[in-house]
Amino acid sequence: MKKFVSVFLGALLSVAFFVVPSSAQSDDARIHLIHGIPGVNVDVIVDGNVVFENFAFKDTQDLSSFAGQTLAGLKVNAAGTDTTAIDAGDVALPASGNYTVFAHLDADGAPALAVFENDTSTVAAGNGRLVVRHAAAAPAVDVKANGAVAFTNLANGQEAAADLAVGTISAEVVPTGADDPVVIGPADLPITEGNSLIVYATGSLDDGLEVITESIADLGPNPTVVNTGDSPIDAGVPVGAGLALVATALIGAGMIRRSQGITVDA
C-alpha cells in the first residue's frame, strides 16, 4: 500500500511537472544511454524496478521516447546484487535535443553518470566532426592528431571537438604536457562526410583504458542550388549522337561494365 501511494504521488508529481515539457517534446529528441565501464555488468533501476538487467560494457539503450520525463530514483547496481554503484536520484531527461547519458568512472575510479549534449549542428561540405570525451579514471590528457597536439588538458568528464576534412586521423593520447607515455593509440580515426564520430576514453589507467565510439550521421549540408545549364538549348551537337559516342568510348575502354538485364530501345 505504501509503495502504491508513493508511486501514485510520484506519478502525480511527474505528470504535474512534465505536462508542459512533454507536450513540447520534439519528435527528434534523441537520448542514448551507454554503459562505459569495462568489465562490470550492471542492473539499471528506476523507481525500485530493474529496467535494464545485466547491462554490459558498450551496451546501448534508446531513451528517446522518455524525453521530457523524469527517471525517478535512478540507480545502477552491480548485476544481480543490491550493491549500488551509482545513485543518481531523480534524473530529468531533456525534452528535446540530442544527449548521451554515459555511465563511466570518474577521475578517482568511482562510477558516475555523465550527460553529454551532442552537437548536431551542420558541418561544412566535405567535413566530418570529431568529438573526444574523457570518461576514464585517469588524469587530464592531451590528444594528438597526426603528431600535433589537437586538444589539450582534457580532464575526466570533459570533451573537445573539431570539424575536420574527410580522411583518417592518427590519434594518440598522452598525459597533459608530455610526449609519453602514450596511453591510447596511435589509433586511426576515420573522419567521414557529415558524420560526428564521438570517441570515449573509458576504463582506468590502472586496469586498462578502452576506447569506444558513438556516431551521429547526417550532419552534412545539402546543396542550396543545383545549376544544370549554362548555355541555351539546341545550340550544338545533338544530344543522342554525342552520348552514343561517349558511351561507346567508355565501354571500349572498359570503364563501363555492360550489365545484364538492361533493355535498351534505342
Binding site: V7, A11, S14, V15, F18, V19, S22, S23, H32, I34, G36, V46, D47, G48, N49, V50, V51, F52, A56, K58, D59, T60, Q61, D62, L63, S65, F66, G68, Q69, T70, L71, A72, A187, D188, L189, P190, L197, V199, Y200, V211, I212, T213, E214, S215
Partner: peptide, 27 residues
C-alpha cells in the same frame, strides 16, 4: 504522456536496445 508516467519503469524495460557502442576497429 500520462499513461507513460504511471509506468515509466515498465515502459523503460520495453525500450529498444540499440547496437552496442562500436570499437575503433569496427568504426
Amino acid at each position: 504522456g500520462n499513461a507513460l508516467q504511471v509506468d515509466v519503469g515498465g515502459a523503460l524495460a520495453a525500450a529498444p536496445a540499440l547496437p552496442p557502442a562500436a570499437s575503433l576497429d569496427e568504426v
